[in-house]
Design a protein around this nucleic acid. Structure first.
Length: 319
DNA sequence: TCCCAGGGAGGAT
DNA sequence: ATCCTCCATGGG
């Protein structure tokens, strides 16, 4: 990793994540735009993607850009923060490595299932380099997962951004820009669902959002402890939360907590798995999830991601 | 106007 | 276990 300059008075920086630190191909655009539900979508400006996170309690605004193709590329990062600090590039590379799944062995995934699963391998050509993202904050991931129920990506993103603007901390960056962080559980716990709904257009989801926030702010639920448990135990604990059913629990565990054996079953996955693996016969959603976990094991999340994108982009007939 | 969106809860069968 | 219906809101 090379710095083009130590943190200066402007607290701006830029560096490159070495190709050798990325395990296999990467399609940054496909990855960021694939609608994964852990945090609001990164903002796009052409081939540049911008996001805000907190590293060591310090807000950082960064922009990522992939140059050239999915196999032979460089991944450039530049950013700005409100206070000067050392080690930001190391921390940010670590953050992006987890957030973009850069260490996941995609070549192994393709090789293994090209041999074992002719159906899944149909998706590999167009989606090469698509990776599982992971949110940086468990609470944010859980709330976003709740917002996504019976909702469109565009709408739940809009509600999440409005929540940030109304109830999140505002951060001023040295480049003159202002960004809002995701609200803390304590801030949402104080709200009346009616008020939250009116300001964010999240509809009936406001009630479970406030109630879950109260449970977490009151330490009735500990997400860190929960995400140290085995998959099955974590699921059953999550199902006790209001607004959290099987799909939301799986979304949180996969995109928020990094359980790669989790496979969220939404309408699209339900459709395409029924079509491709059960000759069009509708099996229940619970069985669909169990089928994916048993068939793909620690790659179930990736199988789900590829089948989802495949279904959404209207190439079902290719099978 | 109707239907749908990366569903969940409560109830009836 | 599986199958209803309702739940807010905005986009097509």
């Amino acid at each position: 990793m090379q710095m083009t300059g130590q943190p200066t008075a402007t607290q701006s920086f830029s560096f490159e994540i070495p190709r050798a630190n990325i395990n296999g191909p990467l399609n940054l655009t496909e990855t960021v735009l694939s609608g994964q539900t852990s945090e609001p979508e990164w903002l796009r400006d052409g081939a540049w993607f911008t996001n805000v996170t907190v590293l060591d309690n310090k807000p950082v605004k960064y922009t990522v850009n992939q140059v050239d193709n999915v196999d032979d590329f460089s991944l450039k990062v530049r950013g700005v923060m409100d206070v000067s600090t050392g080690g930001v590039t190391e921390n940010l590379e670590k953050h992006l490595t987890q957030g973009l799944g850069l260490r996941d062995d995609l070549d192994f995934f393709y090789r293994k299932f090209a041999a074992e699963d002719k159906v899944l391998s149909l998706t590999f050509k167009n989606l090469r380099g698509l990776r599982l993202m992971r949110g940086a904050d468990l609470f944010e991931s859980l709330i976003c997962s709740i917002l996504s129920q019976n909702n469109s990506v565009k709408l739940w993103n809009r509600s999440a951004r409005l929540m940030m603007q109304h109830y999140g901390r505002v951060v001023a960056f040295p480049d003159g820009s202002q960004e809002f962080l995701f609200p803390r559980a304590e801030a949402l716990a104080k709200l009346k669902p009616r008020e939250l709904s009116a300001k964010t257009s999240m509809g009936y989801r406001a009630k479970p959002v406030v109630n879950v926030s109260r449970m977490i702010a009151g330490e009735e639920v500990n997400l860190i402890a929960l995400t140290k448990k085995p998959y099955a135990d974590a699921v059953s604990l999550l199902l006790e939360l209001p607004g959290v059913g099987p799909k939301v629990a799986d979304c949180f565990l996969l995109y928020g907590a990094g359980y790669h054996e989790s496979a969220p079953v939404d309408v699209w996955i339900h459709r395409i798995v029924s079509k491709l693996y059960f000759h069009g016969k509708k099996v229940s959603r619970l069985k669909t999830g169990r089928f994916l976990r048993e068939r793909f094991r620690e790659w179930a999340g990736y199988a789900q991601l590829y089948l989802f994108d495949y279904a959404r982009t209207g190439e079902i007939s290719a099978a």
